[in-house]
C-alpha cells in the first residue's frame, strides 16, 4: 500500500517487517489509522500484534518499513526528536501499568513533563490533579503504586498517558491484567477521555468484545494484516 502523506491519518505504516532470529514476526504490514478514531488490533497470542504496536511507538526498531505519525516518519528522527514525539504526540498505556514504584500517583502522572516547558509547573500540577479526578484517583494522589490495586494503577497510567493531551494513544492490552468489571470501567474511561479531546486510540487486544467497540478492527495473523 502506498502511504498517503496527507495527514488524514494519525498513523500510517508502510511495509513494516521485523524478525527475531529466524522468526519473521511482522511481515510487510501497512496500515492506516484515521485521526480521532478508535482502532483495535486483534490477533491470537504470538501473532505479532503487540510487536506492531511497539514499532508504531518507536520503542522497537523494525528491520524495514516506515511509520508516520501525523505525517512524520518517526524513525527518521534523532533521539531528541523521537522523545519529543512520544512526549507531545503519543501516550502509551501498558498491560502491566508500568508505573514508577518510587513515585506517588501524582508524581507518576507528572513524570512525562519533567523536562517540558510548554506550561508552567503549577499548571501541569493542576492538569495532573484534574486528570486524576477524571479517572477517580485524586483522593489517592499521594499513594505509591504498591499501595494501589491493579485497576487503580491502570487509571493512574491512563492519566499519565493523557498529561500532554496526545493526539495518539497506544494501548497494549490495557485490560489484560484486570477483572471483568474493572476492565469495563477502565475501557470506558480510556475511550471516553480519547473521545473528549479527539485523541486517536489504537488498542491491541485479544478480547473480541472490546474490539467490537472499536470504529475499526485490524486483524494480524502470522505477522501480516488479515484482509
Amino acid at each position: 500500500m502506498k502511504v498517503n502523506d496527507m495527514t488524514d491519518f494519525a498513523i500510517q505504516t508502510e511495509d513494516l517487517a521485523i524478525s527475531y532470529g529466524a522468526v519473521e514476526v511482522i511481515r510487510g504490514v501497512s496500515i492506516e489509522v484515521p485521526k480521532g478514531q478508535f482502532s483495535a488490533i486483534v490477533g491470537k497470542s504470538g501473532s505479532g500484534k503487540s510487536t506492531l504496536l511497539g514499532i508504531i511507538s518507536g520503542l522497537e526498531n523494525p528491520d524495514k518499513g516506515r511509520v508516520l505519525l501525523n505525517g512524520t516518519d518517526i524513525f527518521a528522527l534523532d533521539d531528541n526528536g523521537m522523545a519529543e514525539a512520544r512526549r507531545r504526540q503519543i501516550g502509551i498505556v501498558f498491560q502491566s501499568f508500568n508505573l514508577v514504584p518510587s513515585l506517588s500517583a501524582l508524581e507518576n502522572v507528572l513524570l512525562p513533563v519533567v523536562f517540558d516547558d510548554k506550561m508552567s509547573k503549577p499548571d501541569y500540577e493542576a492538569r495532573a490533579h484534574d486528570l486524576l479526578s477524571q479517572v477517580g484517583m485524586n483522593d489517592r494522589a499521594s499513594h505509591r503504586p504498591g499501595a494501589l490495586s491493579g485497576g487503580e494503577q491502570q487509571r493512574v497510567a491512563i492519566a499519565r498517558a493523557m498529561i500532554n493531551q496526545p493526539t495518539i494513544l497506544l494501548a497494549d492490552e490495557p485490560t489484560g491484567n484486570l477483572d471483568e468489571t474493572t476492565a469495563a470501567g477502565v475501557l470506558d474511561l480510556l475511550t471516553g477521555l480519547c473521545r473528549d479531546i479527539g485523541t486517536t486510540l489504537l488498542m491491541v487486544t485479544h478480547d473480541m468484545d472490546i474490539a467490537a467497540k472499536a470504529d475499526r478492527i485490524i486483524e494480524i495473523k502470522n505477522g501480516k494484516v488479515e484482509q
Binding site: S57, L59, D79, N80, A83, E84, R86, R87, R88, I92, N98, L99, V100, P101, L111, P112, V114, F115, D116, R160, A161, N164
Partner: peptide, 16 residues
Amino acid sequence: QREMAVLEAIGWTRHQ
C-alpha cells in the same frame, strides 16, 4: 531496566 524503558516510552531522551 523496565523503569528506564518506561521513561523512554513517556518521552525522556536516552541522554536524560
